[in-house]
């Protein structure tokens, strides 16, 4: 990252911490915003958060590493989370899992080489009567079949195609400006 971008990021984080009440309670919401924007929470971000909140970086790391939706390694642009709990299992999530692995050429917990897709397990997405359910970033898909996996991935690739340049620009851009 360029120095100017780092400065920008630091300023944004400082501003968002203030938006969220300027105390420790702001830590997780700001981490979540960074995670959403950049796909991971870097060491630099953790250091900034520690400085701003006057806590040790290990504290920040401890929090970031506790929650499964927060990662300190870069993940794919599309994080696909397939529900693995019982009702979805009963509706055939295993086949969907195999299809996803085959189509993407990766196992669960991995990211494709082009950095587009990460495959993860989730525990119950609250769509249990409509299983198998999966979450792609913030979009829920239900009654997924091995056949529909293909369409879902195509849909992602289309979105990705259109937004490539936009995404690239976003890397250096701001966190949301509206308060909360």
């Amino acid at each position: 990252m360029l120095i100017s971008e780092r400065e920008q990021l630091r300023a944004n984080i400082e501003r968002r911490v203030i938006d969220f009440g300027n105390n420790r309670s702001a830590l997780i919401p700001v981490i979540q915003e960074v995670q959403q924007k950049y796909g991971h929470v870097s060491e630099y971000v953790m250091q900034v958060l520690a400085d701003v909140l006057h806590i040790h970086p290990v504290e920040v790391y401890g929090v970031a590493s506790f929650y499964s939706f927060i990662g300190h390694k870069p993940k794919g642009r599309f994080i696909i989370r397939l529900c693995r709990t019982l009702p979805c299992e009963m509706k055939g999530k295993e086949r969907v899992a195999r299809q996803l692995e085959n189509d993407l050429g990766i196992h669960f917990g991995e990211t494709t080489d082009d950095g587009n897709f990460t495959l993860e397990w989730a525990n119950c997405l609250g769509m249990c009567d409509q299983g198998p359910a999966l979450l792609v970033n913030e979009r829920i898909y239900t009654q997924v079949t091995p056949q529909s996996v293909h369409d879902i991935l195509e849909e992602c690739r289309e979105v990705f195609g259109v937004h490539t340049t936009l995404q690239e620009k976003e890397m250096s851009c701001e966190l949301p400006t509206s308060a909360k």
Partner: peptide, 18 residues
């Protein structure tokens, strides 16, 4: 952020506290 145990009330409150 994807942690079931945060449904337990004291864990939930800890999470709100950051």
């Amino acid at each position: 952020a994807g942690a079931f145990v945060c449904g337990e009330e004291t864990a939930l409150l800890a999470s709100i506290e950051g």
